[in-house]
Design a protein around this nucleic acid. Structure first.
Lengths: 223, 223
DNA sequence: TCGCGGTATATTGTATACAAATGGCACTGG
DNA sequence: CCAGTGCCATTTGTATACAATATACCGCGA
């Protein structure tokens, strides 16, 4: 979709990610239309897309609400994600090329810089971490796997809680990426899959701790 | 969505499944609207939904086409499906209850009847096969897994090629279901996962053979 | 006071009209 | 004959008006 619809999609998505629209909040098409400066038609398009990505849940009578994530949901999603990313790593190990390997190394170097200081640059970590996983997914060469994983990874909870990583977890992630690189360099799919699965499982527990910590401080803002 | 939108969705979906709308065919919103007896608005809704389910692909300039499946796509989707259904079976083995077990037995008995005759009742097989997998998915107790698998399983290729199963394959499926039941009855997740993965892999090769056979007879109709 | 019913209001669904953009085609110039 | 270009037809995007439906609120009666 062109301008208006895309704009509405991006705007609503951003509002959800930033927490401006809190989980459980009801969404009025008209209100969103006014907020985005477009009519209801493109807003409806955007809502349908966001519903497909489980950003939004719809009640029996078709009203829209920002999706809420229980601890069970988080656990459920991460179990799947661990399996799928492990699978992606296994495939990637067999297919990865020199350029991709070098790109992975570069991103992990940037991560190393970001997390070595006393005050780690979490945003920088998140961005390069995202790129690393994207490159692995690309190397895995499975479009379906990529789209399915996208649904699991690009979620508000993941994004919001990830910002609460502590320094130790960030450094461990860097180290696990190093191990992944070693496995890739040797085209050892079994090794890569094991590291990746462990990587995601550990991340899950970090997320869960952060998630539970959040329960104490409701209405967490974007920062 | 209520009447019109749901109707458009169901109608277009059926037209694709039946082959009335062939893979690669361009879809005109206006033409579909007329065919469904509704306006373009609900048709657009339906197209967005179908796009999310990869029934439809959209060109760079937003035109809609019935999705085409290459052999690679089929292989890709089935590899994922084998892994995910195996996972579902593992989880189901640990959680399944007596009622579900009995329902599975009942459905597999119906399958047995359907495939034991000289002229197997393929439709009956497909329906009860679908229900069996649905019950297992329900027993697995993972909403995400269910929705992700839904995207992979409910596809036109799968449906269309499944109708070309030969009698031997149908009977093998019945037998594999029996083994699954044995694994479930003993809550042996490892066994169940192994059977299920093998079950899907074998089905894949059957699908592939049917798919390739189809290449010889283009414009295959619904029957 | 509680439950019920009905009306008012808010919200979503549908149709239609118009705007924008894309793709095809014919025509022109080389 | 080919490449490039401009116009026209088709198709999709957006806005708006109206219809249908769900929710909330208030008053009535038991």
């Amino acid at each position: 979709m062109s301008r208006a619809s895309d704009h509405a999609y991006a705007a609503i998505r951003a509002m959800i990610l930033s927490g401006e629209l809190a989980p459980g909040a009801q969404l009025s098409e008209e209100a969103l239309a006014e907020a985005c400066g477009v009519s209801r038609t493109p807003v409806r398009d955007a809502l349908r897309r966001l519903e497909g990505e489980t950003f939004i849940r719809r009640s029996g009578s078709q009203r829209s609400f920002v999706a809420e994530w229980s601890l069970n949901d988080l656990e459920d999603a991460f179990e799947l994600r661990a399996m799928l990313e492990g699978h992606a790593a296994r495939r990637a190990a067999a297919r990865i090329n020199g350029l991709q390997l070098e790109q992975l190394r570069a991103h992990n170097r940037r991560i190393h810089e970001a997390v070595s200081t006393a005050q780690p640059d979490v945003m920088c970590f998140l961005e390069h971490n995202r790129l690393i996983h994207a490159i692995i997914l690309e190397a895995a060469g499975s479009p379906r796997l990529a789209s399915v994983l996208g649904l699991l990874v690009e979620q508000p909870v993941v994004w919001r809680t990830a910002q609460h990583y502590d320094r130790e977890n960030l450094q461990r992630s860097h180290h696990e990426h190093e191990e992944l690189l070693a496995a890739f360099a040797r085209n050892d799919g079994t090794w890569a899959a094991a590291i990746m699965t462990a990587h995601i499982r550990r991340a899950f527990h970090a997320y869960r701790d952060a998630y539970q910590a959040q329960l104490g401080e409701p209405q967490l803002s974007a920062a």
